[in-house]
Amino acid sequence: MSGNAAPLLHEIAALLDRLALTGEGGSVQLNGLPLQPGDYEALQEALGEGEVSAEIQALGPSLIRETALHGVWWATHRNALQEVVAESIEVTRCPALLQTPAEDVAEAARILRERLSVATKGEHDV
């Protein structure tokens, strides 16, 4: 393996160790690194394809896939024009972006109650 792929893989291995021991992982930002031609492909090949793949539609599509190595996720964030705005490798049990923000949970409960009350009102009217 040439170029800068190997050192990145070592960094990922260290992050995995930390995740296993302390529960805290980390991430490697891919945009902003001086990757040589072939490095990107070498990384993809070394990490492989895993079981989970999730797509988020927020300010454009984000694709978050677990690699063949459990706990290593490949996240590609695009804007509405499909241009990559950020790309990173996340070492975590579940990427933060997949989890629902706490405020949204509270908001969801409120919205659901609102809908229910509208529905009940409707029933009484009949």
């Binding site: 991430s27 930002q29 945009n31 902003g32 927020a58 300010l59 933060a96 972006l97």
Partner: peptide, 24 residues
């Protein structure tokens, strides 16, 4: 713009400012 969208925006800005992901 949803909270997830906002978080994504912040993540992209962190990478832009060369700040670690843990600061998002």
């Amino acid at each position: 713009i949803s909270r997830r969208g906002f978080l994504k925006f912040c993540g992209a800005m962190a990478s832009l400012m060369a700040l670690p992901g843990s600061m998002v």
